[in-house]
């Protein structure tokens, strides 16, 4: 079965050119950061879930399910997991998800030890799953997520997609509604030969 499995998971055409191998290569970690990170992560997952891969969403409590549907994620293969926040238990949970699922979208807790992160990464590589790390967008009164600069988590991502919304269109003072946005996506990471920057117009 291991040999028959394709080396990479398919992604939708519009996000294909962002990735260095034009697909999600199994065993790798991709980080989607910035203000459009979560929706980019969802659109990366959509095609693979339609083709039968299961998606585990770990620790992203505030995921808008409706948005996931609109991105084309097939809901019957999406499972939401609420892991404990301590470092060890979190890594045990994520390892269990890696065992059964092809694709993971995870939000990393604040205090994850480097040891546990390495353990998860090793498991990911041996099980040939793909992990997409998104920012934790929890918004509280005291620490607004736009301002809080969190210390980086211990994972070493193979591909980093840093998003930045340039502008929204379809909305005007008092009329219309949010329709499209221009996002600049900077692609870097250790599997990317040369840092690139794309300007993409997206419906999300």
């Amino acid at each position: 079965m291991q040999l028959l499995a394709p080396e990479r998971l398919v992604v939708a055409d519009d996000v294909c050119k962002l990735l260095p191998d034009s697909g999600l290569v199994r065993g790798r970690i991709i980080r989607c950061s910035g203000d459009a990170g979560l929706s980019l992560a969802l659109s990366l997952c959509s095609r693979a879930t339609q083709q039968g891969s299961w998606l585990g969403v770990v620790g992203v409590a505030h995921l808008g399910v409706l948005a996931a549907v609109e991105h084309g994620v097939s809901l019957e293969r999406m499972v939401l997991v609420q892991p404990p926040n301590t470092s060890r238990e979190w890594s045990v949970t994520v390892s269990a998800v890696i065992d059964g699922f092809d694709l993971l979208v995870v939000a990393v807790p604040a205090r994850l030890s480097a040891n546990d992160a390495r353990r998860v990464q090793t498991r990911l590589q041996s099980r040939r799953a793909v992990m997409i790390i998104v920012d934790n967008m929890a918004l509280s009164r005291s620490t607004s997520r736009f301002s809080a600069e969190r210390e980086p988590d211990p994972f070493v991502a193979d591909v980093i997609l840093d998003t930045k919304t340039k502008s929204w269109s379809g909305i005007d003072n008092g009329s219309g509604y949010l329709q499209h946005r221009d996002v600049s996506i900077r692609v870097s990471g250790r599997r990317v030969a040369r840092q690139r920057e794309h300007l993409v117009t997206r419906r999300f």
Partner: peptide, 28 residues
């Protein structure tokens, strides 16, 4: 398929680990 099978097993294991309320799927 094989992936469905392993995923179902993983769901079972996760529910054991975290309690079934922590492992959810969305329904319209």
């Amino acid at each position: 398929t094989q992936t469905d099978e392993t995923a179902t097993q993983a769901i079972g294991r996760l529910s054991e680990l975290l309690g079934s309320s922590a492992v959810q799927i969305a329904k319209w």
